[in-house]
Simulated scan of single mutants.
Amino acid sequence: MNESDLYQYGLFMLSRRDYGKAELFTRMKRRMYEKNEGIIDEPLIEKVLERLSEQHFLDDERVVALMMQGYIRKGYGPLRIKQEMRQKGFADTLVEKKFADVDVDWFEKAAYVRSRKFGESLPQDFKEKSKQIRYLQYRGFYGDMNYELFSR
């Protein structure tokens, strides 16, 4: 697989959806392995990724901002969003920078997510309360935030 083929593959992938640099690197590496009988040229992949970045087709900051807004819309909390971003290969410094730019009241978001799933009234019994707290923790909200929500 030569540089031109790899570049075309990168454009094809980016035309379908936005990718981060690390995720696209992994995809290109897999593609090169399949097409070159197991031979992977990582410097060539880096060169193509740099070319895509220079042409503004590949921009980690834009991808992080878009993904973060999507996760917030889906009702995820800050812990879950950071975990998802880490799994996608984004730098922690970039993610923290974007978190500083986001204006979200996480406590209100947690209350909204809880009420959407379980209704407006707060649970009275321990079993139901712990079920709702586990749900909010799974969604990525801080534990102290969850307990504060239920102690009102």
Rank of each mutant, 00 (worst) to 15 (best):
M1D: 07
M1E: 09
Q8P: 00
Q8W: 12
Y9E: 12
Y9W: 07
Y9R: 15
G10F: 04
G10I: 12
L11C: 12
F12K: 15
M13V: 05
R16D: 04
R16Y: 03
Y19R: 02
A22S: 13
A22G: 00
A22R: 07
L24Y: 06
L24T: 08
T26E: 15
R27K: 06
R31F: 06
R31L: 01
M32S: 11
M32H: 05
N36R: 08
E37V: 05
E37C: 08
G38W: 04
G38V: 02
E42C: 09
I45Y: 03
I45L: 08
E46I: 04
K47F: 05
V48Q: 07
V48C: 06
L49K: 10
E50H: 11
R51V: 01
E54A: 13
Q55G: 01
D59C: 04
D59N: 11
D60F: 03
E61K: 02
V64Q: 02
V64E: 00
L66T: 02
M67S: 07
M67P: 00
M68P: 12
Q69T: 07
Q69V: 02
G70Y: 04
Y71S: 00
I72V: 10
R73D: 08
R73W: 07
Y76I: 02
Y76R: 11
G77I: 10
P78I: 11
P78E: 13
L79M: 15
L79F: 08
I81E: 01
I81V: 06
E84N: 06
M85I: 10
M85A: 06
K88Y: 06
G89F: 11
F90L: 03
D92G: 14
T93V: 14
T93I: 13
E96G: 10
F99D: 10
A100F: 03
D101I: 03
V102K: 12
V104D: 01
W106K: 04
F107Y: 10
E108P: 00
A111D: 12
Y112F: 14
Y112E: 15
V113G: 08
S115V: 09
R116P: 00
K117R: 07
G119I: 08
G119K: 04
E120S: 06
P123K: 13
P123M: 05
P123Q: 12
F126K: 11
K127R: 14
K127T: 10
K127F: 05
S130V: 12
S130W: 00
K131W: 01
I133W: 03
R134H: 03
Y135S: 03
Y135P: 06
Q137A: 14
Y138L: 15
R139Q: 12
R139N: 11
G140A: 04
F141Q: 10
G143F: 10
G143Q: 15
D144T: 13
M145A: 13
M145V: 15
N146D: 09
L149D: 10
F150M: 15
F150K: 06
R152N: 14
